[in-house]
Design a protein around this nucleic acid. Structure first.
Lengths: 333, 333
DNA sequence: TTGTACGCGTTATCAT
DNA sequence: ATGATAACGCGTACAA
């Protein structure tokens, strides 16, 4: 590919002049400017972003560490980050952290080697300390879906406990007293926090929280089916089900229907995330909205600001909100 | 951030030696190798990928031009590309082409400035000629979901016409004679080709293709709802519906049910794409599977090979296959 | 085994 | 207004 030297030679000017017209620099004669532009076109010249990054010490690139593009939740997250990158004319570099601490770390390292100015990290496997170290070393690094008090202003996170509590409260207010839970078996804090929230809402009503009424599985449709089957097999009496996420809820509803339970007449179901899917399900899913796109956009904006030495707010906590649709009803008398 | 010089100085060796240990070069004493590695850790040294790209003339980066991460179809596409990039230890650079020719072109240009060795392009707006020019200029560029005969070996595409035909054939074989269509109003060739396929299947049975039985709208759930309403409003008799994609089909089913039609007892519905959603719908959607992830993976692999001067097969055409689920049944007698 | 020095494509400084 | 030229951080041929 043609370099700036080639252009300079072909146009009979110096590289300095070419550089000026490339960057719309001020001091260059109209005649030369036109000439150089023509030569650039003829040669198919495109400035080399790598060389440029080297000398300017900034490559206008935003890195994103996260796991699965195929998962609608993460796709929405990535979409939010991409929007901000685009509107700022910044390139988006994506690095997959999968689920293990090792790959997450390697993903961050790769981004650092690329000298991304800003980085948005979704990490569940890395320790607080490791993340703290990175945050200290990289000004433009922000955490999404994770809260570490020492760097609270660099974290964009959701109050999972409040979410669990709100879901349970809603059911309680309708009169439900036998509430079962289906949760994720991933060893991260999100499921625990949501469960805590549920428990807390129950306790405030003086109701017990039966450990037997909790089933866990992989946080996807299949997992939802399995967990629902396990729950049914225990022969419990429940009129409502709080499910870890919408994907699981979908599987849950399927199993419920297959076993002759009507949703919501016999069993109410509440999901979590408010992923696109929840609007397509029948009945349409009542769920806790996880404003992940908005959060991702804020995270990206913060990362850009921080990379640019600009200040950011000190708290970026989001609250899930209840989206009432058709999968919840009062319990039968 | 520490440079190779800093490390060299701190370790009391030359930059050449440091470079050797960084790249696991052969000729360096065990003592020095260990020493340098330690110093790198102490200083938090990370090789600068930009500088490296400059001198090696390759930056191990794969670019992807496409539109909407949030759309499950495109997310799956991106996921496929990402998989290949990851397994080859290559960075993924994402550039949004939105829908316009101008932005698509700018997206490609940006990727070229980054000197991506390989590029996968999903373009609907750019002209054949423009794409041809890029393909000629960039050896590692491949097109996905687009077929340009002159560079057939650089295209990974789906036979949309065959898809439409197969969908129609399936319904015909079940005895349906009144088939209506809901299509996308985007001005790209895919909807036209699918319609052609349907028409062809009908003609082979000596059946007419009623232009009145076609409704078009935006290719999403809302569009599906609108198109279905329009179709119903025309008071046509149809026992089956071929819909442009699964998202639209979802809206279609909703409207159908709301109007007292049962799916599939009263009306059969066939979707297109076999997006995750289709398995969650009730009834589960019968649809034409668009093997987009596989196609994306092949496109990415091809791009990498071509960038590496390796040969690739001459044809990469995919056929949509029928996925029978629960939204299709024979017409009532 | 180790070090020196050049070049990769740019930008930016300083003369002219 | 224009042109040399010194960085930027790194890989590597060549010399030692």
């Amino acid at each position: 590919m043609a370099t700036i030297k080639d252009v300079a030679a072909a146009a009979g000017v110096s590289v300095a002049t070419v550089s000026r017209v490339v960057n719309n620099g001020p001091k260059v004669s109209a005649k030369n400017r036109k000439l150089v532009k023509q030569v650039m076109l003829d040669l198919g010249y495109r400035p080399n972003a790598n060389a440029r990054a080297l000398v300017t010490q900034s490559n206008r690139t935003l890195g994103l560490v996260f796991s699965e593009l195929t998962d609608p939740f993460f796709a929405t997250l990535a979409g939010g980050v991409e929007k901000i990158a685009r509107s700022n004319n910044i390139q988006l570099l994506i690095s997959n952290g999968l689920v293990s601490a090792e790959t997450e770390q390697r993903a961050i390292e790769t981004l650092l080697e690329q000298r991304c100015e800003a980085i948005v990290v979704h990490s569940k496997a890395l320790s607080d300390q490791t993340l703290l170290d990175y945050a200290e070393a990289v000004p433009g690094l922000v955490l999404i879906n994770r809260y570490i008090p020492a760097i609270a202003h660099r974290c964009v996170w959701l109050d999972n406990q409040a979410g669990g509590e709100a879901a349970a409260r809603h059911l309680l207010s309708l009169g439900h007293r036998n509430i079962a839970c289906i949760t994720s078996n991933y060893d991260i804090e999100d499921p625990r926090l949501r469960l805590n929230g549920i428990q807390s809402a129950l306790q405030q009503q003086g109701l017990p929280f039966d450990e037997q009424a909790i089933a866990s599985a992989e946080p996807n449709e299949i997992g939802g089916e399995q967990a629902a089957q396990n729950l049914l097999a225990r022969g419990l009496n429940f009129t409502a089900l709080i499910v870890y996420n919408d994907a699981m809820a979908s599987g849950v509803i399927t199993v419920l229907c297959d076993n002759g339970y009507r949703v919501p007449e016999d069993v109410s179901v509440v999901g979590f995330d408010d992923v696109l899917l929840s609007r397509y399900l029948r009945p349409k899913l009542t769920t806790m909205r996880y404003p992940i796109e908005m959060m991702a956009m804020e995270a990206a904006e913060m990362a850009l600001k921080l990379a640019n030495q600009e200040p950011v707010a000190s708290l970026h906590k989001y609250l899930p909100t209840l989206v009432k649709r058709d999968s919840v009803a009062p319990p039968k008398a």
